[in-house]
């Protein structure tokens, strides 16, 4: 029987075939799956903020795109996954509330997406597919065997990317 590993907010976990890995209710947060065609392992990171450098209180490294990805990639490499074979799928980064006035925090979803893309580019890890932005929440489930990322949203049909 396969298991489903749950990843919380500002957290990452690894998962090994044939299991699945999920994170529930991504809003402005971004979920990043890193996998490889030549490895049984994959990892999922749920980040909250773009950069650890902007903030004093940055002890929880999984909260940020930069330090979270560094740790996740390092952990996958320890399981023998080669950097050059790593691929990413990302989802989330929505703007949940539509304010009449623009605020910095209102665009947090967009900034999270951009930070994740920039960081992955820095590691030369290609993004194979994404479902990002817009104004609704997403629950994502990654299948370590088929490498499919399922996306579930309230009142919408499920998506496979």
């Amino acid at each position: 029987m396969e298991e489903v590993t749950k990843v919380g907010i500002a957290d990452w976990k690894l998962c090994k075939a044939p299991n699945k890995i999920t994170t529930i209710g991504l809003g402005s947060c971004v979920g990043i799956v890193i996998y490889s065609a030549t490895s049984d392992y994959c990892g999922l990171l749920h980040i909250l903020l773009p950069s650890s450098k902007d903030i004093k209180n940055n002890a929880n490294r999984a909260k940020f795109a930069d330090t979270g990805l560094e740790d996740l990639i390092g952990a996958l490499e320890q399981q023998g996954m080669r950097r050059s074979t790593m691929r990413a799928k990302i989802a989330g980064g929505a703007a949940m509330f539509q304010f009449s006035t623009k605020t910095e925090i209102g665009s947090i979803g967009d900034r999270n997406i951009q930070a994740v893309k920039d960081t992955l580019a820095g590691y030369n890890i290609p993004i194979v597919s994404e479902d990002t932005g817009k104004d609704y929440g997403r629950t994502i489930v990654f299948d370590s065997v088929t490498k499919d990322l399922m996306i579930y949203s309230a009142g919408k049909t499920e998506k496979r990317i």
Binding site: I24, G25, N57, K63, A94, F97, S100, I108, G137
Partner: peptide
């Protein structure tokens, strides 16, 4: 502003703001 969605997603907004501190 109002938002009707999954609790986890809705709360990501205040959590992001709080997450800075």
């Amino acid at each position: 502003a109002i938002c009707i969605d999954m609790a986890g997603s809705v709360l990501s907004m205040p959590i992001s703001e709080l997450g800075q501190v």
